[in-house]
Design a protein around this nucleic acid. Structure first.
Lengths: 177, 177
DNA sequence: CCCGAGCTATATCAGACCAATATAGCGGAG
DNA sequence: CTCCGCTATATTGGTCTGATATAGCTCGGG
């Protein structure tokens, strides 16, 4: 999903600075499927402002740099909704971990075990983030998104823990000797 | 995973043209977690050649453009393996579908149902691709990767089919009247 | 025979995005 | 005082994408 659309979507929830926009979609429940850098958020907001989809007001409060608060316009909102009703881009999943596992014949068991352990830990952290945030009241949309993330990560964790047993570390080999 | 590494990895499996490299990682068992465009493959191969990690020979067989077959060098191979033993970049998952579901309050039930149906169909296609390719003999690496993909997509499908029941289409509503 | 579609194969380009960095503060801890 | 973490804006060189261009070859249909 292009960064302009992401910004519009966040702004339908309320006014925000560029920094806050990034913080909002980095909220744990959403961060597993949305990402954008400041390097693309600010140019996107500028462009949206030029195009009349967003308006901006500056708040000078003795802070340098000044705080720029963005609001979505009616034009912006209808453009956003039209996009939701248009062609849906495909999901994208890239995994250096799986790519590395594809060539694990080049690695020793300790390295493989360490990679899997690290990936399990990362996955558990992601899962915990989704789950604990969901202790707050969830609307239907959030419940769907959390449910999807929990389902996927839980399944992957189960798979990894099962397969992890096949890989011994040097420490485990030494202990068996 | 950067495109240079992807090309090196594929070339450890055997010599290939730029076009073949793309075809090889578009093989259904791997395509769910690796992707790169010609726009980045050719510059990457050029750079790898300059850097001595890859060598290239041209086959002129009356074909225009000529066929350029790339081979990995010993330097390339050791660089690739060193990379596998180095810091592992994070996975990336981007989902316009989930982003749209996050704002499904702007959509009517028919649109939501259609989106879910489309996503289910896509997911089933991906799952079928992994599964049927795996009818061929799998080495341990391929078995791991296929197992991961099957586990994740199957879990997601189960979740979606369950939740799909909550959304009625106009046709289903009309049939009930 | 001709045409079109699909495939193999190389290459490029404008636009989108990233990671890192710079700048400018403020507040808190050592 | 210094350093770290945070809020906040902005930029830049490098990487990648999707689309496109070019150059064939093969096969099937008219």
């Amino acid at each position: 999903m292009d960064v302009r659309t992401i910004c519009l979507g966040i702004l339908t929830r309320g006014d925000a600075t560029g920094y806050e926009i990034k913080k909002l979609f980095e909220d744990g429940r959403f961060s597993y499927f949305v990402e954008a850098s400041f390097g693309s958020i600010y140019p996107a907001l500028s462009r949206l402002t030029e195009d009349g989809l967003v308006s901006v007001r500056e708040e000078a409060g003795g802070r340098r740099p000044d705080r720029k608060v963005y609001s979505i316009t009616e034009k912006g909102k209808s453009t956003f909704v039209a996009g939701l009703n248009g062609p849906m881009p495909d999901d994208r999943f890239r995994s250096p971990f799986l790519f590395a596992m594809m060539f694990s014949n080049f690695l020793d068991q300790t390295r493989i075990a360490a990679m899997i352990d690290g990936y399990i830990a990362d996955t558990e952290a992601k899962l915990a983030q989704i789950t604990c945030e969901c202790g707050r009241p969830c609307n239907a949309q959030e419940a769907f998104i959390c449910g999807y993330g929990r389902t996927a990560y839980s399944a992957v964790l189960g798979f990894l823990k099962e397969r992890r047993k096949e890989f011994k570390t040097d420490a485990a080999i030494a202990a068996a000797e």
